[in-house]
C-alpha cells in the first residue's frame, strides 16, 4: 500500500505542477479558472490518498466538502465572464 500511495503522490504532484503552469500561463481567465478548479480536485485526491495510506479518517469529510464547494467559485467566475461578454 505504501508503494501504491507513493506512486499516487508523485503522479498527483506532477499533475499539480502542470496545472500550476497552466494557472500562470493561461492566456484567458477561463483557462486560469479551470486550472484552479483542477488544482482543488487534485488536493481532494491527495487527501484521499493520505486517508488510504494512514487510515486516519479525520480529513475524510474534507473531501466531501471540496467536492461540494469547489464548483461554486467556477460558477461565479463563469457568471462574471458571461456578464463581461454580454455588455
Amino acid at each position: 500500500m505504501i508503494i501504491v500511495t507513493n506512486v499516487a503522490f508523485v503522479m498527483l504532484g506532477v499533475a499539480a505542477v502542470l496545472t500550476l503552469l497552466r494557472l500562470f500561463r493561461g492566456p484567458s481567465l477561463a483557462d486560469r479558472m479551470v486550472a484552479l478548479d483542477t488544482l482543488l480536485f487534485i488536493g481532494a485526491a491527495a487527501i484521499g490518498t493520505y486517508v488510504t495510506r494512514t487510515g486516519n479518517t479525520v480529513f475524510a469529510p474534507v473531501i466531501v466538502v471540496i467536492a461540494l464547494v469547489a464548483f461554486v467559485g467556477t460558477v461565479v467566475v463563469a457568471r462574471a465572464i458571461e456578464e463581461e461578454s454580454a455588455g
Binding site: 479525520v58 480529513f59 469529510p61 474534507v62 466531501v64 466538502v65 461540494l68 464547494v69
Partner: peptide, 22 residues
C-alpha cells in the same frame, strides 16, 4: 440537489465540532 446536501453536511460539521474538526 446541491443545497440540501450542503445544509446536511454543514449540520454534520456543526454537531461533530466538539470531538473532531468542525
Amino acid at each position: 440537489s446541491m443545497v440540501p446536501t450542503l445544509v446536511l453536511v454543514s449540520l454534520y460539521v456543526l454537531v461533530v465540532g466538539h470531538d473532531e474538526p468542525g
